[in-house]
Amino acid sequence: MVQTSFSYDALPMRVRFGSGVVASLPEEVARLGARSALVLCSPEQRATGETIAGALGERSAGVLAEARMHVPIEVARRARARAAELGADACVAVGGGSAIGLGKAIALEHDLPVIAVPTTYAGSEMTTVWGLTENGRKRTGKDPRVLPASVLYDPDLTLGLPIAMSVTSGFNAVAHAVEALYAPDRSPVVSLMAEEGVRAMTRALPGVVADGGDLGARTTALYASWLCGAGLGATTMSLHHKLCHALGGTLDLPHAATHTVVLPHALAYNQPAAPEATAALARALGSDDPAGRLWNLAASLDAPRSLRELGMAEGDIEPVREQVLSAPYANPAPVTRDGVTRLLRAAWSGERPAPRS
């Protein structure tokens, strides 16, 4: 059935995709008219960040290797101060959602353009969404100033991504596409991208797991992450993301792994209330039960399937539930106390996902 009423705003950004495309980074910095770009990365990515800074030559303001999950406010403040101290007029964020999120935090205050060089499948580079964590609460918002001006997708940079992280990062991307398919502001363009993103990612991940050096599988996974991230960037988030923001901000659970565990449960909760999205996912996944198919795929790829194994205590269920209920996101199925409790309990214990009752 064709969607008969919608609006779609194309986001103003430039994407370059392909093996070796990171070599064009100096050109992209020059294209923005920037003279001094601060390279941002996590401590684990420092070597890559140093290589990128070296490639920028005199256009590099240095490397700040302090990016952390969920962008703690104290890290953001230090990065903002450092960018101002160095006189940076652009940022190059190298890595996953942590580095790109830190770049967005700087852009939010100093209005500096960001060039994203993703090395995971997180998808943050495709969105105007920012997030900051303070006092155990993760705040998110949207602002066009944080949208990267350019994104360089180079599959070569993903070859070293550990297999376990590749899997959870891939599921994180799929979660973006799933919610884009039933978002209240979806459009036919977004739905096409999201369905193809789910199809491509779920077909690429087994190849990545079989051989992390398979450039073909890595390229397909990165292509999928672009599509899934673009879907997230063009729509609003729903229950799945609200749950993950609460779990991550409050408990500091690993971001991608939390998405991996929660996704089949949040999808099962919403499937009966989102028949068109469920049909699209059924086509992409080759299953009439998309939530069950994702659950089984996670098992086959040795991904985590319970919040308990990520470090969540059973006693954390109630405070997380209350945070979700206090400010729920738009969602196709009603967000109820009993429903969220059952969802969290199943995700915590690692039960097979069940439809909302």
Score class of each variant (00 low, 15 high):
A327E: 14
S169H: 07
V335D: 00
V151I: 15
A23G: 10
L243E: 03
A346T: 02
A279V: 11
A122E: 05
S191G: 08
Y182L: 05
A330G: 11
A194N: 10
L325M: 01
H255V: 14
L108R: 13
T133L: 09
I115K: 02
G229Y: 11
G248Q: 10
D288Y: 05
V75P: 07
V92I: 12
G207E: 10
L161T: 11
T235E: 02
M69H: 12
V262R: 03
R35E: 06
D338F: 00
T48N: 04
S349G: 10
E318D: 15
Q3V: 13
G213S: 12
R31H: 06
M69T: 06
L307R: 01
V75Q: 07
T250F: 08
L152M: 02
M13P: 00
R137K: 12
S306V: 11
G57F: 10
P148Y: 02
A200G: 01
A230P: 00
V92R: 02
V75G: 07
A10T: 14
G96L: 06
V129Y: 00
L285H: 10
Q323K: 13
Y153G: 02
C41T: 15
A221W: 04
M126Q: 14
T168Q: 04
G33F: 03
E58Q: 13
G229E: 11
P12C: 04
A282H: 08
A37M: 03
I73S: 12
A327C: 04
G286N: 12
T260F: 03
W130M: 08
V198I: 14
D111H: 14
A177I: 08
S24W: 01
R203K: 11
G103V: 02
R352V: 15
V63Y: 07
R352H: 11
A47E: 14
M237Y: 01
P162D: 05
H245E: 12
L64A: 15
T235S: 08
E314S: 12
T127D: 02
A268R: 00
R80V: 15
L239C: 09
D154W: 02
S36E: 03
Y8D: 14
R305I: 12
P275N: 08
T258K: 06
A256G: 15
D185V: 15
R321F: 01
A327K: 12
